[in-house]
Computed example of a mutant assay.
Amino acid sequence: MPRDDRKTDDRRQRGSSSAAEERRLMRSTNRLDIPRELRRTIALRSAYDADAFGRLSERIARFLGTGQFLVYMTATILFWVGWNIFAPESLRFDQYPFIFLTLALSLQASYAAPLILLAQNRQEARDRVQYERDRDVDARTRADMEFLAREMASLRMAVGEVATRDFLRSELRSLLADLDLKSREDDRV
């Protein structure tokens, strides 16, 4: 038998080497029915990490919702308006209708809204996962409570069938009374 095992191992090795050789030949030939291997590019492609961008957007959205941001924004706007009203004419960069300030605030709002929505979507996804976990825990807890209720019911039924100490005493007293009665009757006869 060991010789047969060696023969099958040799056949397997020859089969795997011929399969590998066939694959190598198929790669080397320019066949139209076999897709080419991917070409390597000279420039490195940057990997887009959606999670990192999501975390950044959440940080920004959290900051936009703080009093600190409101204080910074108010101070910036007051400085902007004050500078463009009271600074010398040659140093002013945004005249009275403050078009550039309006553009800056619109740009800030146009970026803030999608970032806040993205943060809300991520929070919704986390809430959904937490909801699923809570529902699973609730189902397990409910099943445990039902099991315990069934066990308690079976214990009550078992205890109901068990003779108590008082019941045994009363039965023994009645038996003693019957025995006493029989012994008195036997003594009379």
Score class of each variant (00 low, 15 high):
M1K: 15
D5W: 15
K7D: 06
D9S: 05
R27Y: 05
R31W: 04
D33T: 02
L38I: 12
R40C: 07
T41Y: 07
Y48T: 15
A52R: 12
R55Y: 15
S57T: 13
I60M: 14
F63R: 04
L64E: 08
G65W: 05
V71M: 06
V71A: 07
T74R: 00
A75R: 14
I77G: 00
W83V: 01
S90A: 10
I99R: 06
F100L: 13
F100I: 13
F100V: 12
L101I: 01
T102Q: 07
T102C: 02
L105A: 01
L107W: 07
L107Q: 14
A109R: 10
A109C: 04
I116A: 10
I116P: 11
Q120C: 14
N121T: 10
A125N: 01
Q130N: 05
Y131F: 13
E132I: 03
E132N: 01
D134P: 01
R135E: 11
D136C: 03
D136E: 06
D138M: 11
T141R: 04
A143W: 04
A143I: 03
L148H: 12
R150C: 05
L155K: 11
R156N: 14
V159M: 15
G160M: 14
E161T: 11
E161I: 13
R165N: 00
F167D: 04
L168C: 04
L168H: 01
S174I: 12
D186P: 09
D187K: 05
V189T: 09
